[in-house]
């Protein structure tokens, strides 16, 4: 705590923090409120209490189809981003290759390049060289976006690891594969796990690349929500959104267990 702060300023500070939290969390609370309303119009504060909109999601082919697409996609992206990210992070951490700095910049650049620019480039390249858009393009696109998160979480864990363990394994005659399998990967494990959940969350929530690459057969859950918002939002949109928020809360809790959420400050 900081001492000697005037009392009026302290009070003002807490009012400021409370208002800021209301501002950033408000829209999420409103969405959750709308989802349990009995009214068939979007209304907040909610009128009555009912879970019927959650039931309505599973009677809608559009939502169920989008949910299946999103889950498939997120699982695929999680697998590829984690495997590819693990190898990249190990190499970057060792700093043995010439140009490691440039390589690190390349691997992290999808993080700062706006996804709309990447999305349109991917759409144009795929259409020109492969053909009609389908699930694999979205898989590739989301893997590129999720990769930097896996690399960052893994690098964060490796930075605290003991560099001499691998050296010791080498001295004791462990083969190349044994060293990676039994020494390096276990060191990476918490970072990879956190990165994997990040990757899942990013793919499941991503809307820009998915919007550029949408076709009538390729609609993810965020895009289904977007379509509804453009035309006629009803309380089922709120129910789907609430389910997505629930998943996000779950993933944050899991990531915090693996790595500690404090580590992401300043990234």
């Amino acid at each position: 705590m900081v001492r000697g702060v005037p009392r009026w300023l302290k009070a003002l500070t807490w009012v400021f923090v409370a208002l800021t939290l209301v501002f950033v969390l408000g829209p999420l609370i409103v969405v959750a409120g709308v989802s349990v309303s009995e009214s068939q119009f979007i209304a907040f504060p909610p009128a009555g209490f009912s879970l019927r909109w959650f039931g309505a999601i599973f009677e809608s082919n559009a939502y169920v189809g989008a949910l299946v697409t999103s889950l498939q996609l997120a699982v695929l992206v999680t697998l590829t981003a984690t495997v590819i990210g693990a190898g990249a992070a190990i190499t970057l951490h060792r700093r043995r290759l010439p140009g490691t700095g440039i390589l690190a910049g390349l691997f992290l650049s999808p993080l700062i390049l706006p996804s709309i620019i990447f999305a349109i480039g991917l759409l144009m390249l795929w259409s020109a060289s492969v053909g009609p858009v389908s699930l694999p393009v979205l898989w590739i696109g989301h893997t590129v976006i999720a990769l930097p998160y896996v690399i960052r979480t893994t690098l964060a864990v490796l930075a605290d690891s003991d560099p001499f363990l691998e050296e010791a394994a080498r001295t004791m005659g462990a083969s190349r594969w044994q060293r990676i399998r039994h020494v390096v990967l276990p060191q990476c494990a918490p970072g990879l796990a956190a990165g994997a959940f990040f990757a899942f969350n990013i793919s499941f929530d991503e809307a820009v690349v998915a919007l550029f690459l949408r076709t009538p057969d390729l609609v993810t859950l965020p895009i289904q929500i977007y379509n509804q918002l453009e035309f006629s939002p009803d309380p089922t949109v709120a129910a789907v959104s609430t389910l997505m928020m629930g998943l996000t809360i779950l993933l944050i809790a899991v990531i915090d267990r693996f790595l500690g959420i404090q580590r992401f400050v300043g990234t």
Binding site: P27, L28, V31, I225, L229, P233, S241, M245, I252
Partner: peptide, 14 residues
Amino acid sequence: MTSVVVRTFGWMVV
């Protein structure tokens, strides 16, 4: 970490 479509929907209601 919440999808931007969900957050924007919240503002549309508010």
